[in-house]
Amino acid sequence: MTAPRFQPASAPHMPPAHNVSELMRRVVYALVPGTLGMVWLFGWGVLINIALAVTAALACEAVMLRLRGRPVQRFLRDWSAVVCAVLLALCLPPLVSWWVPVVGVVCGLVLGKHLYGGLGYNPFNPAMVGYAVLLVSFPGQMALWLDPMSSPGLLQSLQLVTTGQQTSGEALDALTRATPLDHVKTELAAGWSLSELSTGPVFGMLAGAGWEWINLLFLAGGIWLLRRRVIGWQIPVGVLLGLAVPALLFWLFNPDQFAVPLFHLLGGGTMLAAFFVATDPVSAATTPRGRLYYGAGIGILAYVIRTWGGYPDGLAFAVLLMNMAAPLIDHYTRPRIEGHARGREQDGD
């Protein structure tokens, strides 16, 4: 056989082991158990939010890519817009008006992502940018969490989402109830103690009724992501420790005024934030040690906001604040390069 014409290539000559869209898809898969838990607890509204958000995200992404002159097909296939949309949708109260997820996604993707240069260039987590815009702009809509296990059927839900009213003419407000975090916060402010509150219907077996199971399901998905090595352990462990350690200290100090650590760990969006939101690699710190600090910062800030701040759950703001700190954290946590002295002191070797 004659010698073929050989083509140049540069080392390494090994096929890539991953691709971005596969990683993003795995994040979506890992969200499935928690999402199903939310659907079981809150009904169709969860799925309607996801459908609205994903549709809006794909449309918005396509338009922005076209405007920016980027290959639309290739970047749409990276699934990053879908992940962002699903994460935002899962943060929203079910059965909010249809425009709430749409506005959130558009703000997140346009302001939080494409105006900074698109995938890989956004300093802030786009889903949390969208969520923060909604929380600040439409606090009324964002407080409409349903009473667990009492959600209306599909048609009723669709009607509520599109018109804000049920066929009976009853408004959404009739179905809603404060979340456990919200409830505890207002009641504590009203002078009740936690020992009195913990016997109430808002508390379940471990933490807030219903929410504890959602958090455990998101935890299961997160552990799967860890095992598949899609995410590293540093950020989730950092978030959970950052939340649990202050919670434990304050709870030991005054158990009547400060909730048990488990209430925080399995309450609100803790597990979703720890494993899925804070781990967005683009806006997080990138050094191994830096990621631990970054996660811990989110946990501590979330505890502070939950306990003393103006919002029942502070994870979104905690994530955004730590996004700002990520470059600084990276700068100060560079790993010691092999063969270099440790800091100022000489390496013992």
Binding site: H18, N19, V20, L23, R74, D78, G118, L119, G120, Y121, G232, P281, V282, A284, T286, T287, P288, R291, P335
Partner: peptide, 12 residues
């Protein structure tokens, strides 16, 4: 190539 998403796999 796609943009770097700073996943850190390379550092690992």
């Amino acid at each position: 190539a796609m943009p770097c998403i700073r996943c850190g796999y390379c550092a690992e």
